[in-house]
């Protein structure tokens, strides 16, 4: 604002506008308007001081102008607008967060991603057989990846799973539990229970068997539940593997 009298004029005008949140916008608008008028009058040959007074004369009584503006800038509508503006800003922030969150979670779901946990204290892997079979169990795809035999005699079954995208909670819901506990066996019908269950991000799981028979030729994975099944017959030595081939 270039003139103190202009400040006083606009203050007097705004004193009639009850919705205070609009004062700033109204002030800017009228300052620009008055500046434009001032430039026009000076372009017509009037000096600056006289032009400034002329602008005020042309604007009219500030109180009358303020009352007219107060009718346009209704307090009720103003408050509704102000609250909705704040609410919309908050909603946008929340909406952006939710979209980013769900997208990030689903991107994670879509990728099988991550590595299997490296099991220490069981020695080196002396035998590995890649199963590479996949099974669709309801909304989950289960990948039987491989079986590893450690030099300590422990056997690890490694599998991963993937959900349909945008599937509702719960996700990664497949595991090898069963009502009768008879899932893992050898060719002689001996059943085994895993004692360690290691999983990464809920998607890659390692089941560790401590007491799998060293004389067994095959590890049989046979899971059945309500018409769904996962089956694999895994050779546990070269001879058995040659027999499979």
């Amino acid at each position: 604002m270039r003139f103190e009298t202009w400040d006083n004029y606009i203050d007097a005008m705004l004193s009639q506008v009850k919705f205070r949140f609009d004062h700033k916008d109204i002030r800017l608008e009228y300052e620009e308007h008055m500046e434009d008028k001032l430039e026009f009058l000076m372009d017509c040959g009037m000096d600056e001081e006289r032009a400034a007074r002329e602008v005020l004369t042309e604007m009219g009584e500030p109180e009358s102008l303020g009352k007219a503006l107060n009718e346009i800038h209704s307090p009720l509508l103003g408050w509704i607008w102000w609250v909705s503006k704040i609410a919309a800003k908050i909603a946008i922030a929340v909406g952006v967060f939710l979209v980013l969150y769900v997208s990030a979670m689903e991107l994670n779901v879509a990728l099988r991603g991550g590595e299997y946990e490296v099991l220490e204290n069981y020695g080196d892997v002396v035998w590995k057989y890649e199963i590479n079979q996949e099974f669709v169990i309801d909304d989950v795809t289960v990948y039987l990846d491989d079986v590893q035999l450690y030099e300590t005699g422990c056997v690890a079954v490694r599998y991963s799973q993937k959900n349909e995208i945008f599937r509702r909670y719960p996700k990664y819901s497949f595991d090898f539990s069963s009502l009768d506990g008879k899932v893992f066996s050898d060719e002689d019908g001996n059943y085994y229970s895993f004692f360690l269950n290691s999983f990464t991000n809920g998607k890659k799981t390692v089941l560790l068997f401590e007491d799998f028979s060293p004389d067994a030729d095959y590890l049989i994975i046979d899971w059945n539940q309500h018409g769904r099944s996962v089956y694999a017959k895994v050779p546990m030595n070269e001879a058995a593997k040659a027999g499979e081939q």
Partner: peptide, 28 residues
Amino acid sequence: SRKIQIAKNVFIILIVLAIYMFTMMWAG
């Protein structure tokens, strides 16, 4: 106009509410 601005804000809020409902359903 102010009324149009209000309508726009309400529309944004309704869109976000729909996103929220979708998120809640996605979460179970």
